[in-house]
Design a binder for these strands. Structure first.
Length: 426
RNA sequence: GGAGAGGUGGCUGAGUGGUCGAAAGCACCGCACUCGAAAUGCGGCGUACCUGGAAGGGUACCGUGGGUUCGAAUCCCACCCUCUCCGCCA
């Protein structure tokens, strides 16, 4: 959600950003609706004021049994009725129009975000680890099916495309990965573990900018709730409608949850394997900060996500997304991309975004400094730390050997006692 | 799922049609008293928006959304949530 005052004050800035996203002219439209809204409001409030005044006098007249005066005043109010009705309607229409316009417009990129059209214009910030160029690497589907531990056909029979059945040691590895990531984020990086609802209402989905624009990307229950596409939704919604004392900030929260995505716009993309699924586990990181702290928190969060890949010794690079590749709610986004040997390229495994006050405005999440008057909207950040399914893919492919076995990364050994390889004798 | 009770300001809690944005207490802030503090006394103390250069003026908000009325925290309807009892259930 956008601050209408900021748009009034800096129309050129917003116009430039939205024109780049193909919405030129929308600022003029907003401003004109805003003008109409305020005009209606002024007239309406004047009429309401007159009505209130008369009503007060009616009460007084009745109290002293002056029925004639009361009747005269009631007739007077009667003449206001049409104005009241008209302006109420005008106000409602303009307000809804403004709301609809603002709710459907993406966040404004931070000034330091590189201009660009798509992922080709993203900027590599740093790189960690060396891709080990295994000769003729097998992909995770091949490996998993050979091991008898990935079964896409069984999944398709019971659920359809974009689902996976994981079995045996591989299922255990997936479970261990989730535990490992959660422990890392809570014990080393200071995040509070949360076990949130996986079904949320409209308000939570709207507040985290999944609605109204992206309803098609979500699964909805028959009673009108939404399956979470990421734990960002319930974690960030923890502050929905709240005023948090500034001394309590930043809030750092993490959760390991399933994520459900319809992948409506992705038909044909990544159809093989478990890179793009309707359901996957993810450890999510969410920070709620004071307005002036979010940039520093963003850098910290990226580091927390990177720490998982470093611990697992998976080669990756950190990308700063360009304006054209950023999501709806973000001011700035870093993607972490892990090396996938079978594809010979890096693929997204984490996305860390600073949303500024964009989500906070939508969900009315504010902060107050002790002793100071007034409140400010908090800033919200979210990032993956990491996507478990894709991490499983990365481990399978990066840790494979010539026999089709998969070595267990050192960091996971405490979570998998007695297991050094998958597909070995163990 | 059935029966009942209830949702009021940061908290507790009064308020069943008019002068109620809302008593009182607690908490908090300022001042006085004090060497300082406690206690006490006095004053202040919600949010959002519109309008105005400002001072100020105004509107809305008592779970949410409708309705009745000149006027709604108060009456009516629907929904949401909480609590108690019963049933069911991992």
């Amino acid at each position: 959600m956008h601050d209408i005052r900021a748009i009034r004050d800096n129309p050129e800035l917003y116009d430039a950003a939205w024109s780049a996203k193909g919405r030129s002219g929308v600022v003029a439209e907003i401003l004109s609706v805003d003008t109409a809204l305020r005009a209606a409001k002024t007239v309406l409030e004047t009429a309401q004021s007159q009505r209130n005044e008369a009503s007060k006098l009616i009460g007084q007249a009745k109290a002293r049994k002056d029925e004639a005066e009361a009747q005269r005043l009631m007739a007077e109010v009667e003449t206001l009725k049409s104005t009241l009705a008209e302006q109420t309607e005008a106000e409602r229409v303009a307000s809804a129009a403004l709301q609809d316009l603002l709710a459907a417009l993406p966040n404004i990129p931070a000034p330091d975000v590189p201009e660009g059209k798509d992922e080709h214009d993203n900027v590599e910030v740093r790189r960690w680890g060396e891709p080990n160029h295994v000769s003729a690497p097998r992909d995770h589907v091949d490996l998993g099916e050979s091991l008898g531990m990935l079964d896409f056909e069984a999944a398709a029979r019971m659920s359809g495309a974009r689902f996976t059945v994981i079995k045996g040691q591989l299922a255990r590895l997936e479970r261990a990965l989730g535990q490992f990531m959660l422990d890392l984020q809570t014990q080393q990086n200071g995040y509070l573990e949360v076990s949130p609802p996986l079904l949320v209402n409209d308000a939570a989905a709207y507040g985290t900018d999944k609605l109204p624009k992206f309803a098609d990307d979500l699964f909805q229950t028959t009673d009108g709730r939404w399956l979470i596409p990421t734990a960002e939704v319930p974690l960030t919604s923890l502050v929905m409608g709240q005023i948090v004392a500034e001394e309590e900030l930043p809030l750092r929260m993490t959760a390991l949850t399933p994520c459900f995505r319809s992948e409506a716009g992705a038909s044909g993309r990544d159809t093989r394997g478990m890179i793009r699924q309707h359901q996957f586990y993810k450890v999510e990181l969410v920070s709620i900060t004071a307005p002036d702290q979010s940039d520093a928190e963003h850098e910290r969060m990226v580091g927390c996500a990177e720490s998982v890949l470093k611990a697992l010794e998976l080669p990756f690079r950190t990308m700063l997304l360009c304006t054209g590749d950023m999501g709806f709610g973000a001011r700035r986004t870093y993607d972490l991309e892990v090396w996938i040997p079978s594809e010979g390229r890096y693929r997204e495994i984490s996305s860390c975004s600073n949303c500024g006050d964009f989500q906070a405005r939508r969900m009315d999440a504010r902060t107050k400094k002790a002793g100071e008057k007034g409140t400010r909207f908090v800033h919200s950040l979210n990032g993956s730390g990491l996507a478990v399914g894709r991490t499983l893919v990365a481990i399978m492919e990066n840790y494979q050997d010539e026999q089709g076995r998969i070595a267990i990364p050192q960091a996971l050994h405490p979570y998998l006692p007695g297991l050094t390889h998958i597909g070995g004798e163990g």
